[in-house]
């Protein structure tokens, strides 16, 4: 099964790292890329992803701002969002969980560890009924149609 994964990340090496990790894992999921929250919102409106990896520190619209807008949208709020950041800041964690996230993962230093983490997360969502049945997509679409 193929997932549509949105990576919201401004660092080009990080984007490269993510693509390379998926390639190394022989995953063929679709990767959408946004350099900041603004771009991510536009992508979400046009092409709803099944999973989002979100960096916190970004120019223009940062991760938490993007997350707040996303969670207020009846259609998009069902998309699982995993924070992928270097920020070990306690307040960031609390804020993110308050707004609503599916996970908070620190970017490990070592590339091998990074690949492992990404694998674990994607594998988890692959076995997850919520994603498999595109539950959030149909529900979200219904809500959107009803408006």
């Amino acid at each position: 099964m193929s997932l549509k994964i949105l990576l919201v990340e401004d660092d080009q090496i990080e984007i490269l790292k993510f693509e390379r990790a998926l390639k190394k894992l022989n995953y063929t999921h679709d990767i959408l890329n946004a350099n900041n929250g603004e771009e991510a919102l536009i992508i979400c409106e046009n092409d709803t992803p099944s999973l989002i990896f979100l960096d916190l520190n970004m120019p223009k619209m940062n991760g938490l701002e993007f997350l707040s807008i996303l969670k207020k949208d009846n259609h998009l709020k069902y998309i699982p969002v995993t924070i992928l950041t270097t920020s070990n800041n306690h307040q960031d964690k609390i804020d993110a969980y308050k707004i609503g996230i599916a996970g908070y993962v620190l970017k490990p230093l070592r590339y091998e560890n990074y690949v492992n983490n990404i694998k674990t997360i994607i594998d988890y969502w692959l076995v997850n009924e919520l994603v498999k049945n595109d539950f959030h997509l149909t529900e979200g679409a219904d809500v959107k149609n009803r408006k």
Binding site: I13, L16, T86, L109
Partner: peptide, 12 residues
């Protein structure tokens, strides 16, 4: 931290 992660990845 970010460039350090990049460096580490690039070396790998």
């Amino acid at each position: 931290k970010s460039p350090l992660r990049s460096m580490s990845a690039l070396i790998s």
